[in-house]
């Protein structure tokens, strides 16, 4: 565990002012949909916040609602068709209640997002140059040439070699890693304060993963940007996040600083995730996978959604939905036995 914490410190290197007011805070966000199989609650009463310059990890398996929540924040999911409640405060203003027009102004400028499958997220029939420069040209009113110059500058920043000559290239001419760099350049074009990276490295091979993560950290640091890193891979978060939110079945399971999360995981799910993590010092050991499968959103078990897969489960878990409880400063978990588990793990 210590190795991980050290790794994190090594990578981030800088410190976040923990006393500063959060740049964005999400309060009681719920997102539901009506589907042919009945209503589903993709995000259920989620709250978290992020400070300037901070990296927040959001961890969860697919279907845990992590992407839906962030897409709602970005305004890519709207009501209708979704049912959205709660607040997302940006500088104290609830962006969920803003008119669409105003929210669009926020995108790119205040917050930007990059996606898991960069190749799919790039338009196959427009050149890289166009895709990086267009938003700058349109929103900033820049000339075509100025916008292309800006694109070259951004491509240099994300370390795309011989940028200018590749302005006219199409996405299919790029490797996956290069596409992700293009995505990042696109997202940075308007100099956003918050960058949401939704599984940015999942589709890439290991060496490229590392390069992209390093790049993200680098641009975050240079720009004093906040980074929300969404992943199912605890290892990725371990290396670069300051704090993390663990999501399970649309709800928050646990939130803590990385240090606390690794030292004293207090939710059985977090514990299971940590155990499933490949370790540097135990490479040959078999990974301990979490037994069972995550629930589908339309069939969430009663009480605690993790109950069917939980080794700590008691009859109470089936009847009572555990609320998120504060365990320590910046550490909360939603488990009836969180305190006990925390005790136990801290003595490991």
């Amino acid at each position: 565990m210590n190795a991980m914490t050290e790794a994190r410190t090594r990578v981030t290197g800088d410190r976040v002012d923990v006393s500063a007011a959060p740049i964005m805070s999400v309060e009681g966000l719920s997102v539901g949909f009506d589907t042919p199989h009945g209503p589903v609650q993709a995000v259920d009463n989620v709250s978290w916040s992020i400070r300037k310059g901070e990296t927040l990890g959001i961890i969860g398996e697919s279907g845990s609602g992590k992407s839906v929540g962030l897409e709602t924040i970005m305004g890519l999911i709207t009501s209708p068709p979704a049912r959205i409640s709660g607040q997302v405060l940006l500088d104290g203003q609830d962006i969920l209640s803003m008119p669409q027009r105003q929210r669009r102004q926020l995108r790119g400028d205040r917050m930007a997002m990059i996606f898991q499958d960069a190749l799919a997220a790039l338009n196959p029939s427009l050149t890289i140059g166009t895709q990086i420069s267009e938003v700058y040209r349109i929103r900033r009113g820049a000339s075509r040439q100025a916008a292309l110059d800006k694109a070259v500058e951004l491509m240099d920043q994300v370390k795309i070699p011989s940028a200018r000559s590749r302005l006219k290239a199409y996405p299919h001419e790029f490797s996956g890693g290069m596409c992700q760099r293009v995505m990042i350049a696109m997202a940075l074009a308007m100099d956003p304060e918050i960058l949401i990276a939704d599984e940015p490295t999942t589709a890439l091979d290991v060496t490229v993963q590392r390069q992209i993560m390093d790049l993200l950290q680098e641009v975050r640091r240079e720009r004093g940007m906040s980074l929300i890193l969404v992943t199912h891979d605890l290892g990725v978060v371990a290396e670069c996040a300051d704090r993390a939110v663990v999501m399970y079945s649309g709800r928050m399971a646990e939130t803590a600083t990385m240090r606390d999360l690794f030292r004293t995981p207090s939710h059985p799910y977090t514990r299971a995730l940590l155990q499933a993590m490949p370790r540097v010092d135990a490479r040959l050991e078999r990974l301990q996978a979490i037994p069972g499968t995550p629930p589908t959103l339309s069939h969430i078990p009663s009480g605690c959604a993790f109950r069917p897969r939980c080794t700590f489960a008691q009859p109470r878990c089936a009847e009572e939905k555990p609320e998120l409880r504060m365990l320590a400063a910046e550490h909360s978990a939603a488990c009836h036995f969180a305190e006990a588990i925390r005790e136990e793990t801290s003595h490991d």
Binding site: R104, F115, A120, L122, L126, M186, M190
Partner: peptide, 26 residues
């Protein structure tokens, strides 16, 4: 419904451009 449309929205493009340039060309 394709991801590049969500990505184009995420970078703050006006909807008319997303429709008339991004989606229409494909």
């Amino acid at each position: 419904a394709r991801p590049y449309v969500a990505a184009a929205r995420a970078k703050g493009l006006p909807e008319h451009r997303i429709v008339s340039v991004h989606a229409l060309k494909n």
